[in-house]
């Protein structure tokens, strides 16, 4: 028989050729079985080692193992190549085609705006407070220094409920000021979001139901400057750093001095206006403090409030308030 040693090299070359030319994983496996398998040709060669003279065995064994290692290396890399090839998509993907759309739930735009406002206030130590929507006249008007025949009630035409005690639907969130101050000792630092009601027929700018948010801060030595500073902080957070605010004297029965807040920004200029009225504020009237049992000589405070729909309408460029209450998905999904 020809020497084993002479067979090693040709067999290695043959195996190499077979492995490298294998076109598929199946062919590759066949080649592996043929040469490197348990019954493969290299195994057979090793089995023949016994027939070699003792002194030739180590060299032959070493050479066979070297060849096997080399072939195994080639096998692995060829296998990786072929596996990768098998993974490749049969046809190219058009990435401009739409993917499978998932249903994404959206928060109502009024909720989003309310949350943004609350977030700004919470950064500076305010907490959220709440109160009933069905209110009595005392908390909605009298305690807020608005007596029964006061002209300030004129613009707040009110819904009354048909029950014996004849409560009303609160016309502003300010009633919660009273409820909180009645039950909590100063200092107070609250923000009150909520629904309010006025007898307005629904049109593009009115809905009998709408939302307000109101802030109240009562402490020692609270100043009008503090109020301006806080209002500016919140509106910059809400409407952008470029917003300009203007405070001008106004009248509310429960604050004195009372101010109205106008803002000016790229948004208002786009609407063709330099200034747009956005909120009312003022220093809490001593009579209001008197009504809740706070000593106006010790405590001072400010309150301010605004309509959430109005902010949302300005922010998103919505011109009809009724859209908020129609809940058309094509509307809701935009925010």
């Amino acid at each position: 028989m020809s020497g084993i040693l002479e067979q090693i090299e040709p067999l290695t070359q043959e195996a190499l050729q077979a492995l490298e030319s294998a076109g598929s994983l199946t062919d590759l496996d066949k080649a592996r079985v043929k040469y490197l398998g348990v019954n493969g040709q290299f195994t057979a060669l090793l089995k023949q080692m016994g027939s070699l003279p003792k002194e030739q065995r180590p060299a032959a064994g070493k050479q066979i193992n070297l060849s096997k290692k080399k072939l195994e290396g080639v096998l692995i890399s060829r296998k990786e190549d072929l596996e990768l090839e098998a993974c490749l998509p049969s046809e190219p993907t058009d990435f401009s085609l739409p993917g499978r759309e998932q249903r994404l739930g959206k928060l109502h735009p009024l909720t989003q705006v309310t949350e943004d406002i609350i977030r700004s206030f919470r950064k500076i130590g305010f907490v959220v407070a709440d109160g009933p929507e069905v209110e009595d006249e005392y908390h909605c008007f009298d305690a807020l220094n608005t007596p029964a025949d006061h002209p300030a009630r004129d613009s707040q035409d009110t819904f009354y409920v048909k029950t014996p005690d004849r409560p009303l639907l609160r016309t502003h969130t300010s009633s919660v000021q009273i409820r909180v101050m009645e039950t909590q000792a100063p200092p107070i630092r609250i923000i009150v979001p909520g629904r309010v009601y006025r007898r307005d027929t629904a049109d593009a700018t009115h809905n009998p139901t709408f939302h307000q948010i109101e802030g109240l801060y009562v402490d020692k030595n609270v100043t009008l400057g503090d109020m301006k500073g806080t209002v500016e902080f919140v509106f910059r957070e809400l409407l952008g750093k470029d917003v300009k605010l203007r405070f001008r004297p106004h009248y509310f029965s429960y604050t004195e001095p009372s101010l109205e807040i106008d803002f000016s920004s790229a948004l208002t200029r786009k609407m063709g206006k330099e200034w747009l009225e956005i909120a009312g504020c003022g220093m809490v009237h001593p009579k209001v403090f008197g009504n809740v049992g706070y000593d106006p000589e010790v405590w001072s405070g400010w309150a301010f409030g605004f309509g959430i729909e109005r902010i949302a309408m300005i922010r998103y460029g919505i011109s009809d308030i009724r859209l908020f209450y129609e809940n058309d998905l094509r509307f809701l999904n935009q925010f």
Binding site: G125, V128, P187, R189, L224, G225, K228, G229, E232
Partner: peptide
């Protein structure tokens, strides 16, 4: 209020928010 109005609200400087932290059950 009259003094405030006539003095000019725009002349009153804004002071940054300060003071107590609020507390309310509803929070």
């Amino acid at each position: 209020e009259e003094v405030t109005r006539l003095y000019g609200v725009d002349r009153i400087p804004s002071t940054p928010p300060r003071g107590a932290h609020g507390a309310n059950e509803f929070d």
